[in-house]
Structure formats: structure tokens, C-alpha cells
């Protein structure tokens, strides 16, 4: 494992969220790399400092009492939280509004346009997905299961191809974040090689191109109004073959 991969995984390591195999690989790297060890030390020191408890804000006793008494059986049914009955209509109305508003409260994300940034992000997402604990959100080789799973989780319907017969069985699907938006992640396998395909709607049309980054092969193309990125440690030739299969209309 090289420094760049370790830096991507360092937070997962510090948080104890890596699978045992990856954990060991990262540990081995720390033993031999003083630069990464220094970053690790500072990560751990920061963690320890945040966890001393001095930053924790506990609920004031008055608030606790107020809430406790609000939900105690009261002799009169006049109020639940010290509000007159008519106010409940207003409370209910504002609650309804709150739920509508918060439902769509999506996190703000960077607007990264630079190609290099995108390549790094796709690679980082791929590396992260290889942590055993989070390769797929929905595990299925059936595209009629995977495709509907995305419904309601994304603002577009990804096209899901079944390439089992061609030797690229599907493992499942996953929600991911790339290029500052929620994207569909489709996971395929070739022998023991994992292929991640990320896709999201985009107006731009680009020529299919292949590149290599950190030992992974990547292919990017647009198709039916979607931007696609495929990434794998699979050899370039077989990845190209996979992409051509995805691009052919008969596979959809």
C-alpha cells in the first residue's frame, strides 16, 4: 500500500472502521513510513483532545426538567408543554413544514470541475468501496432488483446492465458521492477484480477516454445524457471490453 492510499484510509483506520485485512496493511505501512506515522500521531492526538469531555455540552437541568414534566401524565389535559391548546394547531403546522423542509436538506458539497479532482475522487471512492464493510448497499446480481433500489434515493434512474453472460457478474449497487452530487455506483466483478461504475446525469458529451491513476485503470465516457466512470485494478484491455459491453445498446 502506498502513501496516497494510506492517507485516504487513515481516518477509517483511526476510527476503527477498516476491515481486518486493510487494517493490517495500513498498520504495516505505518511501521515503515515516518511521514504517514507523523500524520497518524497528529490524528490520534486530535482525537484524544476532542474526547477529553471538556467540549461536551450537557443539557441544562432546567431543560431536562421541562421536558420530563411535559411528558408526565398531567392532572389536566390543558397543555403538554405549557402551550395553550390553540397553539397546537400552529405547532402542528410548523412541524409539518419542518418535515417538508428538512426532508430535502442535502449536504453542501464542493463544486469541483477540475478533471484531476474528479479522477482523484473516483479513485478514492473506489478504494473506499473495497473496504469489505462497504462495497455495496444493495447486494444482488439481478438488475431488476438493483435498478428499482435506486428509485427515490437518486434524482435520476440509472441504467443497469446485466453482463453476467459476458463474464462480468454484477455484485450490487451503492450510493456514492462524486463530483459534488449523489451518484449511482454499480459494482461488477471479473474473476477477483472489482469494477466500480459511477454514473450521474450530465449535459456535457465527451469522447471515451482511458487513463491510469495510482495503479488503477479508469475509463470515462458519456452516454444517453449520463457521465460514466469505470475504475478497476483489472487490466486495461479487459476493462475496455467491459466498457464496450456497457456502451452497446443490446446490454440495456
Amino acid at each position: 500500500m502506498n502513501c496516497q492510499e494510506v492517507r485516504i484510509l487513515i481516518d477509517g483506520y483511526v476510527d476503527g472502521e477498516l476491515d481486518p485485512i486493510r487494517n493490517r496493511e495500513v498498520e504495516q505501512h505505518f511501521r515503515t513510513c515516518p511521514a504517514c506515522s507523523t500524520v497518524l500521531n497528529s490524528h490520534q492526538a486530535l482525537r484524544a483532545a476532542l474526547r477529553t469531555g471538556s467540549l461536551y455540552r450537557t443539557a441544562p437541568p432546567a431543560l431536562r426538567n421541562r421536558i420530563r414534566s411535559s411528558f408526565k401524565p398531567a392532572p389536566t389535559r390543558k397543555s403538554l408543554m405549557g402551550l395553550p391548546q390553540w397553539r397546537w394547531v400552529a405547532v402542528a403546522a410548523s412541524l409539518a413544514l419542518v418535515s417538508v423542509l428538512t426532508w430535502r436538506a442535502v449536504p453542501f458539497l464542493p463544486t469541483e470541475t477540475a478533471d484531476d479532482q474528479l479522477i482523484q475522487e473516483v479513485t478514492a471512492s473506489h478504494v473506499r468501496s473495497l473496504m469489505v464493510t462497504h462495497l455495496v448497499d444493495i447486494s444482488s446480481s439481478d438488475r431488476h432488483v438493483v435498478k428499482p433500489w435506486f428509485t427515490g434515493k437518486l434524482d435520476f434512474a440509472p441504467s443497469v446492465a446485466d453482463l453476467t453472460e459476458q463474464g462480468f457478474p454484477m455484485v450490487g449497487g451503492r450510493l456514492d458521492y462524486v463530483n459534488g452530487r449523489a451518484v449511482a455506483g454499480l459494482v461488477y466483478k471479473r474473476r477477483e477484480h472489482v469494477i466500480n461504475v459511477f454514473l450521474w446525469p450530465s449535459a456535457a458529451a465527451v469522447e471515451t477516454r482511458s487513463l491510469a491513476h495510482q495503479g488503477y485503470h479508469l475509463v470515462c465516457w458519456t452516454q444517453s445524457g449520463m457521465t460514466y466512470w469505470a475504475i478497476s485494478d483489472l487490466n486495461s484491455r479487459e476493462l475496455q471490453e467491459f466498457v464496450q459491453l456497457l456502451q452497446s445498446p443490446s446490454s440495456h
Binding site: G12, D15, A105, P107, R128, H134, D176
Partner: peptide, 10 residues
Amino acid sequence: TGIPQGTVMS
């Protein structure tokens, strides 16, 4: 937070 699990680490 409603963000995907894979995004939490980054």
C-alpha cells in the same frame, strides 16, 4: 446525517 456511509469517512 443522511449522507451515504461511504462519504462519512471522507
